[in-house]
Design a binder for these strands. Sequence first.
DNA 1: TCGTATATTGACGTTAACGTTAACGTCACA
DNA 2: TGTGACGTTAACGTTAACGTCAATATACGA
Lengths: 143, 143
Amino acid sequence: MGETFSIGDLAAEFDVTTRTLRFYEEKGLLCPQRNGQARTYDAADRARLRLILRGKRLGFSLQESAEIIAMYDPATDNKKQLQALLAKIREKKQRLQAQQQDLESMIRDLRTWERRSRRYVAQLDAAASDTDLSQPRRLTNEL
Amino acid sequence: MGETFSIGDLAAEFDVTTRTLRFYEEKGLLCPQRNGQARTYDAADRARLRLILRGKRLGFSLQESAEIIAMYDPATDNKKQLQALLAKIREKKQRLQAQQQDLESMIRDLRTWERRSRRYVAQLDAAASDTDLSQPRRLTNEL
DNA sequence: TCGTATATTGACGTTAACGTTAACGTCACA
DNA sequence: TGTGACGTTAACGTTAACGTCAATATACGA
């Protein structure tokens, strides 16, 4: 068998608490083996956790991450289900692409602001070396 | 003066409830004028709201959106503050770019899965027309 | 055998981001 | 003059995603 992990191992590796891992299990997102009382996680559990956390970083709820993870599960073996699944995949992809749009807008805005602010700091510097502190120009805020 | 909006206007335009707008105000993210009791929003308020919602879609908390919006505010006019602000901008940009990585990973994964599932459906179709329903091959799940 | 580390199961607490309800004001208009 | 449509404040309710705490079990080393 492959490598296994304790709850503490995974918690440390992914920087979450053990409570979090038990919570995910309680919600049906993880289902590690049991070694007596203790939980034993394998590579697949670890991969699932990675997906859950990736989803979180992207603003998905646990419910949604659960759905996405379900898509990776080949246990669905009839045609209608697979087609429903494909529809879901397309929906998720659209949403993710919309997020990309938002991200690009925001990064563009931030870049603009960074340049603008940098010029302003430079202006302040120049004014200071001129001992001309009279009227620092305001940045206009057109949002 | 420019165009103004009622609370209902903005709620309808951005598909949020009026409660939400009052809540954002309560949290200091919006501060519309008052016309007697009633709120009157202008173009700047509207732009702020757009930023807040964009942040939400990207998984930012309201607190974080508030910080980001504060970056757009030119009211900070001393050099140290501006430099601290630039640092924050860089931090946010890094986080956003990390999100882009996650997004790309996930979209790539989904694309792969879509193709794989599509092939599987095609296989099922072929099998059906052959009246050979014996052993539909399983998709392997290597996550 | 004792202590320390790590695990377990409840069970209650917390925070963010609103929803919901109640009780009321105001303005156009038929 | 009522009757909607739209607005207001205040206060309590809700859901998600954990945190925190208590009491208990298990293994391992000195």
